[in-house]
């Protein structure tokens, strides 16, 4: 089992956001979590990757059979949990190559492998850049500085394919992408799929799921998963809207 979330309750301050999430993701699976704004999608992502500011009031999260609730964000990352951010931050003056090499070598070090020198890393990164059709100028630019929405998301996927995580959580990766960028991003993800890698795609719309085919679709509403099904569930949602499920809840 890649990820096992049981009865997860979490709040921000006094406000409960997640109200009993149960989720199991097996190795090799692609899950989609759909929901409206404010349903708790981003909170769930942030809690899995260990961002501060949330209180877990009940429940458990196990990754590869072990609880991760006490692990720091960087330990979770080093252990193979990756988040593609909805709004990737800008870091002025730090070039992408340097940033990504630092991250890559942090992981190598964690795994007890020798660090990769600058030249070898350049070779590696050039190969990876092809996967998301990233322009060469990327290497010299600062992290996400002056990037278009599409470039930022492609950069997230580039980081994913370089760091090779076991569990990737793609938070609203489709937002702000035109159709060409969407296809590039989806391609990057699809080529990265493997039987020992799992994915959770967080999305508001069904659009991305046309290109990244999920094995399981969940619908998140008011902090709970109210429906789980196959990829046809995403289509049904697209057709009927989230209101369709409001009725279910009543």
């Amino acid at each position: 089992m890649m990820l096992k979330i049981k009865n997860l309750h979490a709040s921000v301050g006094d406000k409960p956001i997640l109200k009993g999430i149960n989720l199991e993701v097996k190795a090799g699976e692609m899950h989609a979590i759909m929901g409206r704004n404010g349903s708790g999608k981003s909170t769930l992502t942030n809690i899995i990757t260990g961002k501060e500011g949330y209180t877990i009031t009940d429940g458990s999260i196990e990754y590869k059979g072990k609880s991760i609730l006490d692990d720091s964000p960087e330990d979770r990352a080093l252990n193979g949990i990756f988040q593609s951010f909805q709004y990737p931050v800008v870091i002025h003056g730090v070039n992408n190559t340097y940033f990504l090499r630092t991250a890559y070598n942090a992981k190598r070090k964690y795994l007890g492998q020798p660090e990769l020198d600058a030249a070898s890393f350049m070779k590696l990164i050039r190969e990876k850049m092809k996967l998301v059709e990233m322009d060469r100028s990327y290497l010299k630019r600062s992290v996400n500085d002056g990037f278009s929405g599409g470039e930022k998301k492609r950069n997230e996927i580039l980081q994913m394919v370089t760091l090779e995580p076991s569990l990737s959580i793609l938070d609203e990766t489709d937002s702000g992408l035109d159709i060409d960028a969407l296809k590039i991003v989806a391609n990057g993800v699809n080529n990265f799929r493997r039987e020992d890698r799992s994915f959770i795609v967080i999305t508001h719309y069904q659009r991305l799921l046309k290109y990244i085919e999920p094995d399981v679709v969940h619908v998140l509403m008011d902090g709970q998963i109210v429906k789980t099904g196959g990829k046809e569930l995403a289509l049904a949602l697209e057709e009927k809207g989230y209101g369709w499920l409001d009725g279910d809840q009543l």
Binding site: G50, E52, F85, V89, I91, H92, V94, T102, K107
Partner: peptide, 27 residues
């Protein structure tokens, strides 16, 4: 915090993240 978390999420420690951000700032 967002910048530091972003670095953390890529496996970069808090201390390394701050020094990276500061050095970028001073470049």
């Amino acid at each position: 915090e967002e910048q530091i978390f972003y670095c953390n999420q890529r496996g970069i420690s808090e201390e390394d993240a701050v020094s990276m951000i500061v050095n970028g700032f001073c470049k």
